[in-house]
Amino acid sequence: MSNCSSNPGVGREPEGLSKPIYDTYNPSEVRLYGRPATREEIFKITDEQIRQRIETSLRETSLKEDDLRTLVRIVKEAALGTIDNDVLAGIFRQQIVLAIFDDELKFNQLPVSVNIPSKNFEKGGERYIKSIGVIYGYAYEGQCYKLPKPQIMYLPDEPREILGGDCGCDCGYVPELGYAVWQIDKLERVIALDVRSDDVKTLVLDENMPGSRSPMAYAQVMALAPQRHRD
């Protein structure tokens, strides 16, 4: 009988992943199983489409073809931050940015600084955080475990391809369901996000009140400190 456990599908099968590392034994390695974030380019349009849009905007000018190509290159470099490391470090810093667009299409962002080493990224070094994944389970010291709930994590390594064994899976996770694996030492630093969505009563009031109590008792239960005696 197969020892594979049943896991939900989490997306299309990941493509272009590296093979797992098997050449060395690391007794403190943790294998994280989950769905890797999709990797997409910032620019969805081609250079020719960008050139046409710029050309339309500058219709009243007398720019030459070579000038338009140069302008397209400058716009892309400025947006992507590939001019030099100083610009790149200023645009893509080692942080998390939570963002939404409002009804007026204004960009609302909340940068979250993280206490994560960057390995001298500002000086042309290597970035520490390299991928994002929704982690569903993990393996440690030859045993497989499931998380109580999926966890979004920023991770210091790239996801790798899952290779099936005798039962065609690895801890019950198969690439056909969209899973990948991260091989990370247990002392490496990661960032875990706790994302929940519900009404305010559930996430704020009920979450912080022990037991089921009457709403009239809420103020008494949530008192943080005794009142000071006034003179």
Rank of each mutant, 00 (worst) to 15 (best):
I129E: 13
D84F: 02
A180G: 15
M209L: 15
I152M: 10
G9F: 10
L187G: 08
D206V: 00
G178V: 12
Y33E: 14
P36M: 09
Y173A: 02
I132S: 15
D206C: 01
C169Q: 00
R53K: 08
R73T: 12
M222Y: 14
K149L: 08
T82D: 05
D47C: 10
R69N: 15
F107T: 03
G11L: 09
R35A: 12
Q143E: 09
L155Y: 01
Q52N: 08
G211W: 06
T70D: 11
I96G: 06
G172P: 08
E40W: 02
A78E: 15
E40K: 05
L110C: 05
C144N: 14
L203H: 04
L98V: 15
C144M: 11
D185P: 05
L187M: 14
K19Y: 00
L68P: 04
A37G: 07
L71D: 03
E48L: 15
P20D: 05
L17R: 07
K186G: 14
G164D: 10
E29I: 09
D66A: 15
I152Q: 05
I21N: 00
M1V: 10
N120H: 06
Q183P: 02
L147W: 01
A37P: 01
Q227L: 06
S28Q: 08
P215I: 03
R31Y: 06
L68V: 02
R127M: 08
Q183F: 03
P148W: 10
G164W: 02
R127Y: 04
N108G: 03
P27I: 14
T82G: 02
P20C: 06
V195P: 03
I191D: 00
A78V: 12
M222K: 14
W182M: 05
D206W: 00
S18V: 02
T202H: 04
V190R: 01
F43P: 00
E77R: 08
E29V: 14
Y128R: 04
I21R: 01
P8S: 07
L58M: 13
S113W: 01
Y22G: 02
S2I: 05
I152K: 05
E158I: 04
Q143T: 08
L32I: 01
Q94I: 01
L58C: 12
E161Y: 11
F107I: 03
Q143R: 13
G165N: 11
A225N: 07
N3P: 01
M153P: 06
G81Q: 11
E122L: 02
G211T: 10
I132H: 00
L187R: 07
D23Y: 07
G9I: 03
G34A: 12
L110G: 01
E48I: 09
